[in-house]
Design a protein around this nucleic acid. Structure first.
Lengths: 220, 220
DNA sequence: AATAAATTTTAGACAAACCTAAAAAAAATC
DNA sequence: GATTTTTTTTAGGTTTGTCTAAAATTTATT
């Protein structure tokens, strides 16, 4: 019953899902920007996705994924994140190197492959950036997380996600000894530049507003 | 320096390499049969491969891989066989289930990925069918092997390759307790049906001519 | 060597996924 | 509410890889 879709279609579904989750509403221009393509190409594809009942779409009126489209998108995200986990945990890749490779691997079609991989990896709950991995039924747990900028003072929390995935942010985080799971507390907020003073296990450090925005934490 | 080629081009290079190795000479019709496509489509692709200097080709005169084409083909074979090994050894797939999945995985482009995978697997020399895995330079060892039908009487040998990759042959081999590495000796050949009497570790068994043709052995 | 058969190539089409330029519709601004 | 701007869609074209049918070439047969 698992129909096969082209890599291109899968990329559209994933992009639409992603935009839907973050911004709520999705536009043709947004999708074009996300996929580095042209609005005209997006319209072409929207029609095809509608014809396959993966998308609810009325021209000029907007669009959103159908239930089926959502299911397909979640399976691609599952594959992407499991492969990222594999690359980092088993093949010792850096955090910042895995995205592109996973963009290719996520289109491998075998369901059995991905379920076996999941098992081999010990059914991980999140990928190396802290993003949740949907299970084989497409279910996932969205943890209650906030940007470090919004964490109240003196509240113990744990790093659960890094929004930016560049190697530049990785360099900085490594330098400051911050990783997924690191415990921290905000001790002071400076209104001049919105920088934060952070208490970590054995040290106090300063974090810029720019960096803090990209660190999501959950209270512990 | 590693140029990217389409999956389709890679499949042609692999097919031509394969035919070149087994039959010596390759024809348009052979390639069409191997790839389940039409001769006209093959001719189209031969021109493109020639334009990219992957193939030495003169129309109506035949063709063969250039050095570059050979290198590309070997890298795809390397990827295919490493993934097969991974699927069988790490994800517990059966021997007969892995080919199709590896057909997809072999087109993932990252060289670093495949070299890391090789390392993770412990630099295996052969895939689960006994076919040699080229190293990252494209070097490979072709073991001296013959079909069981051509092994002289009373000569100790070891199963090194199974030519056929179907699940039917696997079923039969499992039943007879034959696997890669099994030791055997041919004790008698029956000219009536060309069947063989084989001595194994603790038993004597009979093998049909049809099966024996598909079992390659190396002398020990 | 002439003819028949098989193989290979060309010519012209098609589908998927993209593009540019222009038209249509919706949203923003005066 | 009319006009300008932005967004979205259509129309028509390109590339890659495929196809069928017909033509060119080679090989086999008499």
């Amino acid at each position: 019953m698992t129909t096969k879709y082209s890599s291109s279609k899968e990329n559209y579904l994933k992009a639409i899902f992603h935009l839907q989750e973050t911004s709520g509403i999705v536009t043709t221009n947004d999708v074009a920007a996300e996929l580095q393509t042209r609005p005209a190409s997006v319209t072409d594809m929207l029609k095809k996705l509608k014809a396959q009942k993966l998308l609810l779409y009325e021209k000029y009126k907007g669009f959103r994924l159908s239930n089926d489209g959502r299911k397909v998108a979640l399976q691609i995200i599952r594959k992407h994140r499991l492969w990222e986990y594999f690359l980092v945990e088993k093949l010792r890749f850096g955090w910042d190197e895995v995205h592109e490779i996973a963009e290719e691997l996520e289109h491998i079609s075998s369901k059995k492959l991905i379920d076996r991989l999941d098992e081999f990896l010990g059914f991980p709950k999140t990928d190396p950036h802290g993003d949740p991995i949907p299970d084989s039924q497409g279910r996932w747990v969205q943890v209650q997380q906030v940007p470090l900028t919004e964490l109240p003072l003196n509240t113990p929390a744990e790093v659960s996600n890094i929004t930016d995935q560049s190697s530049e942010i990785l360099e900085l985080l490594n330098h400051k000894n911050i990783a997924l799971g690191s415990r921290m507390e905000v001790k002071k907020k400076f209104s001049f530049d919105n920088s934060l003073e952070i208490k970590m296990r054995n040290s106090h450090i300063t974090i810029s507003a720019e960096l803090a925005k990209n660190i999501l934490v959950k209270k512990v």
